[in-house]
Amino acid sequence: MSYFTAASLDEALNVLREAKGKALIIAGATDLFLKGMPSQAVDIASLPELGMIVEEQDYLSVGAAVTHAAAASSPLIMVKAAALAEACAAVGSPQVRNLGTIGGNLVNAAPAADAAVALAALGAKAVLCDIDGRRRVEELGNLYAGYNQSRIDSSREIVLNLIFKTCQFNEGSAFARFASRRALSLPMVNVAARVGLENGVFAEVRLVAAPVKPAPTRLFKTEEALLGKEPNEETRQMVEELASAEVKVRGSLLRCSADYRRHLIGVLAGRVLMAAVRRVQDKEES
């Protein structure tokens, strides 16, 4: 195996181009041993242009090489995209969070990747660049080819950053996961929400759960039922019921039964929704 640490994006793209499909991008590599070693690895985790968290007007751009630890402790993300900070703080262990990157989390394409679930709820889009220098912007949902399989071809394209609208004054977001152990544990479920309130009622809701399908899955029916409703205990209970009814999930010997997983998605959906609402209310009160 050859290992190349790229000093610039151009250099990384050049190596990919010359390797003609034999080299793969790595960024954090915390799952590399599980997935098998590529014959050539191009490490982009230390590229400065991919490590930035930038706010431009109402948008936040998070570089693909931003580590989970950096995202979890970024004041910008904590304030303007709390769900992402919470999700990144929940990943693996301190060692994994210090090495693993948000772009890596996405391209790894695990069905219940914490950061991916939060980004999906925030409505993030990925900016990609291929070896011919072509750039494109993709919805997160379009990046999954199947369970643990990404559409992103790491031998010829690189995720540069994730872009999403920051949570405005009337908006809030939250993330929650449920696992059998407090660290180093894949979640049985993880759920994230982004809400916008107007005149005390839900005006906008994005509710995402995993693992339901290969990609983080929006619960459209539950979202729709919430519009115009007041955030209160009754609504929370409604969300619990709707969310668990809306998802079709699988059980697994190693994690939990399908019934329990469905129940947890309901409970966590209710919780993240109310937590996101509280974030709006806190802003309004202060």
Partner: peptide
């Protein structure tokens, strides 16, 4: 947390990722 799981006689959780011993947080 712990305990063996089997699938047709094969150990289904033969790794420390899936055979969960407590971490310091637990």
């Amino acid at each position: 947390l712990e305990g063996y799981l089997f699938n047709e006689g094969r150990v289904a959780n033969p790794t420390l990722a899936d055979y969960k011993i407590p971490t310091a947080l637990d």
